[in-house]
Design a protein around this nucleic acid. Structure first.
Lengths: 193, 193
DNA sequence: GTCTATACCTTGATAGAC
DNA sequence: GTCTATCAAGGTATAGAC
């Protein structure tokens, strides 16, 4: 029985607290208490409250960007590709709904430098969606007029899920992911067999 | 030349500040300074910082709920109805993107009582979307398996817009609204003439 | 209704013992 | 690496003069 290191316990506690109350409403006392430590112990493992947020945010963005790149590379068929992307992206937001809430909604609490870095990851994610949609349109399997706008709409569907999703509610991550993948294909006017 | 009353100036200043930094990162000094007053003057016109947020949030929710009810009642044709609803709902979020950001993302900063009240308005809004989608499905003009899930997806598209929309960017409220109305009709599998 | 001044509290972060 | 104790700063809200 391996114990969870204090550093990770603090990160998990921070995710919970930031997701429930938001970064600015969360105190370092709240985080350290949730992790079963004194307020001072936090600073042995993390430089500051903002640094803790940055670690969570950065990891989350890298994670989803990587996941989408994999989904993109998994096939050359535009329909299967976009379906896989939307399925995986949606599922991630449902499975990690608390973490995702922090990743998506607390960017403004980052330092300008950290915010710029994260903004770069977001542009990468948008670009992957745009590429997937554009290729489908070029091959004539999608019917699209506004590629960047449509990309934003699909991304929005998946991300906004964290505003309402309840892990103990009736919807499983797979069921929402399947629904949103279907809706995405319809939205791009995918030719069905 | 009528002057804007101090009470309204403070509300406008609060919208700006809450939208830029979030409720908890905004100070009463920030709000009152933006409105051209001392910190103490705020409390002559509003009982507290939370009350100010509640007024903004309540008005925004009533506004959008009313707008959707009007759009719903404007026609009996399911296709035109849903298109109008999505157009108006999206356009509102683009035109009032700052206000909408506060309305949609700062609910957790409300008192439990105020939060409950606002949650009721949100349920009403969801229900209007569900009714519009269900009727289209019943009449055979939409092809829908999951009515509540599809409603959430369409609402999410419009709401998440406030996370990225820039008033001085290339997209006008009307252009985004038109795009999202089109995407909504496709997503529900609307029969086109 | 506006101001200046301030009470009172909580915050992020540190010091120093163990 | 953990704790207790604490600091300096900044927060909401109020008091009281004008």
């Amino acid at each position: 029985m391996t114990e969870v290191p204090a550093r990770e316990r603090l990160m998990d506690a921070a995710v919970e607290a930031f997701a429930e109350r938001g970064f600015h409403a969360t105190t370092t006392r709240d985080i350290s208490t949730r992790a079963g430590m004194s307020p001072a112990a936090l600073y042995v493992h993390h430089a500051s409250k903002e640094q803790l947020l940055y670690e969570i945010s950065s990891a989350g963005h890298l994670n989803t960007r990587h996941m989408l790149a994999d989904a993109y590379a998994s096939t050359a068929d535009p329909v299967a590709r976009l379906a896989t992307m939307q399925f995986e992206f949606t599922k991630w937001h449902a499975v990690h709904s608390k973490r995702a809430r922090v990743v998506q909604y607390e960017i403004s609490a980052l330092t300008p430098e950290h915010r710029r870095e994260v903004a770069g990851h977001r542009r990468d994610i948008e670009r992957i969606y745009q590429d997937a949609i554009r290729e489908g349109a070029d091959k004539g399997v999608f019917e699209i007029e506004d590629v960047p706008g449509t990309a934003l709409a699909l991304i929005s569907m998946a991300i906004d899920l964290v505003r309402w999703y309840q892990p103990d509610g009736p919807r499983t991550p797979d069921s929402v992911a399947q629904l949103y993948a279907d809706l995405a294909l319809r939205a791009v006017g995918a030719r069905t067999a």
